[in-house]
């Protein structure tokens, strides 16, 4: 593959009438990388994935996937990539095995030929191979969709929000499956609205309102958080938030579970903050300095942008 890159994106924009779904996107993905596209609904994740999989034309800009131009060489791209759309798009009235067979045949291969590649995942649903796909549970549908997306041994696998609406345990299991696929040398490009999944990727692009906030390793994204971050615990998070928002030293404050994460204006003395909290009735509040998570960084980058 040229220059060790699986995906090269140059100035991609996509406009739907006056709506700017994507605005001047630039980044690349290395061969064999697990790359996460992370952002909320409506950020432009699906538009970008559809462009990279040759299913949607960009308004402007270019992209190369697997060495092929997404517009000129779309037929070649389709042969060498796997794509798992956000919405379950298999045939409900075909059985598990018929679906897999169908996708294998479309790509000119057989289940037998590439069985090794999908074995880990497919073997979990193989006992139900005669069941109609529409009658599978959510988790099993997901495994079948992933098997179908990989049956032709793609070089790059695109997954559009595979874990949306999936419970925390199943999400963890899904990421373990992805890790195994990556270990087989397949480049993975996965989108998600769950910020905590960022740390499972080699690199991430944070996306919001059609623009990229940052592209980096999760570790470096966290390093770029440029204020000391504190966590404050109190019994009553609602009043803690209210009281801290009223404090002039507060720069940003957000709830995180049973604590808040807070940054202060330069020159703030933390002892003064603790005294203020005691005075406002948070007798058992506990303040400590913490390492930011990706979600802290995302919110800071969002605030800077707006």
């Amino acid at each position: 593959m040229q220059s060790g890159k699986s995906i090269i994106i140059e100035n991609i924009s996509k406009h739907y009438g006056s709506v700017k779904a994507l605005e001047n996107i630039n980044f690349s993905v290395d061969n064999g990388e697990m790359f996460g596209l992370i952002g909320p609904d409506g950020a432009g994740k699906t538009s970008l994935i559809r462009i990279l999989t040759s299913l949607l034309l960009p308004t402007s800009g270019n992209a190369i996937v697997n060495g092929y131009d997404i517009v000129k060489d779309y037929k070649k791209i389709r042969k060498t990539i796997g794509y798992m759309p956000g919405k379950f798009s298999l045939y409900y009235d075909l059985t598990v095995e018929e679906n897999l067979n169908f996708f294998a045949t479309v790509f000119g291969t057989t289940i037998k030929e590439n069985y090794d590649l999908i074995k880990d995942i497919y073997s979990q649903i193989e006992p139900f191979k005669d069941r109609q796909a529409g009658k599978l549970s959510g988790g099993m549908k997901q495994k079948l969709a992933l098997s179908c997306a990989m049956i032709h041994k793609p070089d790059v696998l695109f997954l559009d929000e595979p874990t949306t609406g999936v419970d925390a345990v199943s999400r963890k299991e899904f990421w373990l499956m992805l890790k195994k696929i990556k270990n087989k040398g397949i480049t993975i490009f996965v989108s998600t609205p769950y910020m905590d999944e960022a740390e499972l990727c080699d690199r991430v692009a944070l996306i919001q309102d059609g623009t990229i906030l940052t592209v980096d390793t999760p570790v470096n994204v966290v390093k770029s958080f440029d204020n000391p971050l504190y966590s404050i615990y109190s019994d009553n998070i609602y009043y803690l938030l209210k009281d801290l928002r009223a404090l002039s030293a507060t720069k940003s404050v957000f709830a995180f579970g049973q604590s808040v994460h807070i940054t202060f204006n330069n020159g703030t003395n933390i002892e003064d903050v603790n005294k203020y909290l005691k005075d406002t009735g948070h007798s058992n509040s506990n303040t400590k300095i913490i390492t930011p998570c990706i979600e802290d960084c995302f919110m800071q980058l969002m605030s800077v942008k707006s």
Binding site: T164, I237, Y238, F254, A255, M302
Partner: peptide
């Protein structure tokens, strides 16, 4: 589900 992290927190403010 799928809401950005700042709006998600504003939503919880309303719940509180």
């Amino acid at each position: 589900g799928g809401v950005d992290p700042i709006t998600r927190r504003q939503f919880w403010d309303m719940i509180y």
